[in-house]
Design a protein around this nucleic acid. Sequence first.
DNA 1: CCATTGCGGCCAGTTTCTGTCCGCAATAGG
DNA 2: CCTATTGCGGACAGAAACTGGCCGCAATGG
Lengths: 357, 357
Amino acid sequence: MANTSSRTLRLLSLLQNHRYWPGDELAERLGVSPRTLRRDVGRLRELGYPVQAQRGVDGGYQLAAGAALPPLLVDDQEAVALAVGLQLAVQGSGAGQQGAIAEAAARALAKVTLVMPPRLRRQVEAVAAMTESATWQGAGTEAIAPEVLARIALACRDSERIRFGYTAAGGQRSARQAEPHRLVALDRRWYLVAYDLDRQDWRTFRLDRIGPVAGSAVPGGAARPPGRVPASAAVEATGVRFRARDIPGGDAAEFVRRNIRGLPAASDVVAIVEAGGGPVRKKIGQWASVTDLGPGRCEVRMTPPEDSDWPIIALGITGADFRVVSPPEVAAGVRAWAGRLARAARSGESPPGPQPA
Amino acid sequence: MANTSSRTLRLLSLLQNHRYWPGDELAERLGVSPRTLRRDVGRLRELGYPVQAQRGVDGGYQLAAGAALPPLLVDDQEAVALAVGLQLAVQGSGAGQQGAIAEAAARALAKVTLVMPPRLRRQVEAVAAMTESATWQGAGTEAIAPEVLARIALACRDSERIRFGYTAAGGQRSARQAEPHRLVALDRRWYLVAYDLDRQDWRTFRLDRIGPVAGSAVPGGAARPPGRVPASAAVEATGVRFRARDIPGGDAAEFVRRNIRGLPAASDVVAIVEAGGGPVRKKIGQWASVTDLGPGRCEVRMTPPEDSDWPIIALGITGADFRVVSPPEVAAGVRAWAGRLARAARSGESPPGPQPA
DNA sequence: CCATTGCGGCCAGTTTCTGTCCGCAATAGG
DNA sequence: CCTATTGCGGACAGAAACTGGCCGCAATGG
């Protein structure tokens, strides 16, 4: 309380929470003399946080943008908003070149949730539960539990072995133990690059295929360092730390790209849209890669979550005619939508009232 | 550098960036003796940040969740991700009871952008430009420039008069000068509760109707406190501070609700969906209020941005038949979609190749 | 049983911090 | 032009803190 560093922090907080303070008031709030306040301000400036001052009548201090970001002092609500926003960013903005952002968001999310008081974490979960289904619409959502992502991000950061269940492309579930190295966001999917300890080799895992460990093979009261999170969920931090290895090729994203190239991209959606590539790209470039096929026609390719209506929506908002090349499921979905919308359109024509036979 | 408080901050940063440090390494990094490190840790604990320690071989320190959120020390990328995520939260999650979250997000966003170095701000703008159109799909976007929102949030926080252009419901543009008091997120819209200095009364302004000031009525080199942002945009901070008044009724959200009730909610979309309220609510409860109309039927009411395809999409993903009650524009939109999708469905049936006449 | 690692008391020397007093420099208003 | 206000920073003395070194103790795992 009477501490100097704590006071400096409190000063920073005040300056972040209200941009314009007369010096006297600041001094009073901090319980020090104005001279000491000036010294504190000087200290902040030395630390690189530019506190601007206005002299003369009605003068005061205010915090400006500097070269580095000062420690962020947020209140509870803001912290919740932060976490929610980061979850949105993590789930939603993985597209295109934004992979880097998504990864940073994952890191930040891990950081925040780690230090967030439990009561706030509960709030975040509550809000996320409300919003979750919304970001990735459609029923069979492949959305990743934010908590899985956060835990893996933490394990990567801290070089801690993890154990998890994985459903391979074929459908077989198995328990894995691995050294997680990097999270990579690619094409709206999350991948973990890890050294698989059972296979003794590098692997990439799709996060949406990670689930609870099959047989929670932890013998009774075995060695578990206190303070570790128990196997409450899909991913288990073992508490065993490892030394980082070099990822083959050096670049994690490149490694993922190579690996998933080889796999059958069966779920890709391909469609021909009767409109110029430019406008289409502008409207749905977020989710799809668009290739021009001459004037007024282009090819759209997406990798949406399975079983979702997303590709239909994307094609719909292009506002142009289109043709689904593959897969048949999406074409079937289009037929279903067409039927429903046609009935809706017809019902709208007739005057309101009970549907005529 | 050699400062105690700076060192404490650095320690906090280390603990946030990597969860498990042997004491000796921490001491070495901070350039102090282990004894002093222990004292620093004690200081952090006194400040309320629970640093857990493991004794014995392979022991170390780690930061755990405490009662209060410690100052967040984020790197550049994380800061960008933070800002992007907050913008998403601000634009997207305004629905239902989440208004409070959205407002907190706006506050946090203002806070972050204010102290963010310009280079990072540019990055955020770049990313936002890519993502913007995506959140609120559809053409006639009513999305609010994040910068407008941030600036108004700041002005509210700092009790600073603002000047802006406003397009009234009728369509007339006018220049306003007001004392901004609160931002309110309601029904996926943002409102500003402010005391209008020209009208000498309280008003609510829809943020999406705020635009650049008509005649940037600032005479040449007139008095402008240095450090103020110039009239670079839709909202201008005058630099004049004011004393807060009491909002009539005390509650800003309530005030907004009263005021907009009176206005014609012409753009409301109403539809009847042939499905139970429960499932429908689960699928689109984010964007619409759902009222049960007996088993297997419910009414859906939305207030989407004008001219967007959003209501059609929402109704489509319910997966049920429906009927658009109003407005006619949406019904027309449904017909257009139905036509396009029907053609797409038909083209899918025939083997690929040039469309048969 | 032992090595490792964190804990915290004690102490002496040093550093830093604080409040007070001072003159100076901007700034806005009369 | 003058004045009140407000921030700036030097000087100084006393008080407070910080630091490193030393110690014995307590967990912890092998």
